[in-house]
Nucleic acid binder design. Structure first.
Length: 453
RNA sequence: GUGGUUGUAGCUCAGCUGGUUAGAGCACCAGAUUGUGAUUCUGGGGGUCGUGGGUUCGAGCCCCAUCAUCCACCCCA
């Protein structure tokens, strides 16, 4: 039999890892709840057509598709063969696959809103913490199965929502100890205005893909890429000016108005950004006109959260406003905005910066030593009484050398050891030893629960 | 999807240009000593060298494939 294994890019989580993950997840969940968001869960799989075409061409390739059952049924064989031919041409086909694992939480959420908009109270604020799957090649900070934590508001165009979501980012990252995080914002309207200034909205994608790489490959290479993407000399000069805008948030807004002039998109973008900058009292917030974000459903403000610069890690969160997502599912005019936290990357960052609190690795408070058959039966009753007080404890499973029992406690990070032997039974007391300090004392059995509380 | 890295005991690794029964440290188990974790001492279990082919008298080492891993690109959380 082959050695057991798990699929590429997936992981098993041990107790230690789960406790650390729960630390992150509960922090995020509590903040979401604090801001009035309600939980939602959607299935692991969606109908393929729900997902296809929503994430751009690259995104479609990364969707995990599920093979239909019953393809070998005689009455399906012809269809299956036909579907396979199409698959080889790069087209997915419902006769072969009609379901897929979800790729993010936003599109399934939009689908949910479109299906249930008659029942929902708007603005509808929901949060969702679930795994998603991408057929990407794994590497640092990139997994094929990972967890996203999303908060979205639909049914409101108020920029207050943008401000609230920024405050959520701030509160979560601060609580996790990532005070040095960065939150970049931009507006799709600004990018659109730039594209128009450079020959038309159809250039938007070419321009954003290129300028998004600025901090990675540098200005010269960005210019070369722009050239390759068919932009002319004048247009590149405009983009270069655009990229050279610097200063604080207010100065940047003034500069962008100078450069792109007063047109509908520019003023919309400036209005959005300046409202946010003035109302989110958040020093980590930085306007970054090079921020683009690939997902093409965004229509307004876009966000990207980055780990403290001391850690080499891509974005640890992102989001933005999408004014017509449910329109993709036939229900127009429901504007929305959402943000997402990447738990797995946040985990890696906290690990690297050693920011996990030390107290989260214990569950059992005390280990009762097994001092012999009769003694253990007696201790067992005491144990149950302590448990009745809500204190987690356990007894060693067999009578053996104390050495071994100590080691067990040590490995499980159990802070206290309780010894009840024949001498203690007689005096109705026990020995309680604190493993970290090595100190021990005798206390009466009636005091034990209070002591451990 | 493209290019590269690595894969030897539970863990970290060594193993020279291919040459006898594949090693170390830590961990583990048993024993000695002790109603208290340590130290020490003695003994022990463990590896089809990622997997499958090939070259060779002979492969952990060379070649091919495959899987996993990590990294860069693409893209992204």
């Amino acid at each position: 039999m082959a050695k057991p294994s798990i699929p590429q890019g997936t992981r098993d989580f041990s107790a230690e890892t789960i406790r650390k993950r729960n630390h992150i997840l509960s922090t995020i969940r509590n903040v979401f709840e604090l801001y009035g968001f309600e939980p939602l869960e959607t299935p692991a799989m969606e109908n393929l057509e729900t997902l296809m075409g929503k994430y751009g061409e690259e995104g479609d390739k990364l969707i995990f598709k599920i093979l239909n059952n019953g393809l070998n049924d005689p009455k399906n064989i012809d269809k299956a063969k036909e579907g396979f031919e199409k698959l080889l041409e790069g087209k997915s086909n419902a006769s072969l696959t009609e379901r897929a694992l979800k790729y993010d939480l936003t599109i399934p959420f939009a689908r949910y809103v479109a299906m249930n908009h008659g029942q929902l109270t708007f603005p509808f604020k929901r949060y969702q913490i679930q795994p998603v799957w991408r057929a990407d090649r794994p590497q640092k900070g990139r997994y094929r199965e990972f967890t996203q934590c999303d908060a979205d508001v639909v049914g409101s165009t108020s920029l207050i929502n943008e401000v609230e979501l920024i405050n959520i980012y701030h509160q979560v990252f601060t609580q996790l100890g990532l005070e040095q995080y960065e939150l970049k914002i931009n507006s799709r309207n600004i990018l659109l205005a730039l594209a128009e200034a450079c020959g038309g909205a159809d250039k938007l994608i070419d321009i954003t893909v290129a300028i998004d790489k600025l901090d990675k490959i540098g200005l010269e290479k960005v210019k070369i890429e722009l050239q390759q993407r068919g932009l002319n000399e004048n247009q590149i000069v405009t983009i270069e000016k655009y990229l050279s805008i610097a200063g604080n948030n207010v100065e940047k807004l003034a500069a962008i108005e100078d450069l792109l002039g007063k047109n509908i998109h520019t003023s919309k973008g400036i209005e959005e950004l300046s409202f946010i900058v003035h109302h989110a009292s958040n020093t980590h917030l930085a306007i970054d006109f090079t921020l683009a974000r690939g997902l093409n459903y965004y229509t307004g403000v876009i966000f990207e959260a980055k780990a403290p610069s001391s850690v080499q890690m891509g974005s640890i969160g992102g989001g933005g406003r999408y004014d017509n997502l449910t329109g993709l599912f036939g229900v127009p005019n429901i504007p929305g905005i959402g943000i997402s936290f990447g738990v797995d990357r946040i985990y890696d960052v906290l690990e690297e910066l050693q920011l996990f609190p030390s107290g989260i690795q214990t569950s059992t408070k005390a280990l009762f030593f097994n001092m012999g058959e009769n003694e253990s039966l007696f201790a067992f009753d005491v144990l149950q009484q302590v448990r009745a007080q809500g204190i987690a404890c356990e007894m060693f499973h067999e009578t053996t050398k104390l050495d071994k029992q100590f080691k067990y406690a040590e490995k499980k990070n159990i802070p206290y050891v309780v010894i009840i032997g024949s001498a203690e039974i007689e005096k109705k007391e026990c020995v309680i030893k604190h493993l970290l300090t090595g100190k021990q004392e005798n206390i009466s059995l009636s005091q034990l629960s209070n002591f451990l509380q």
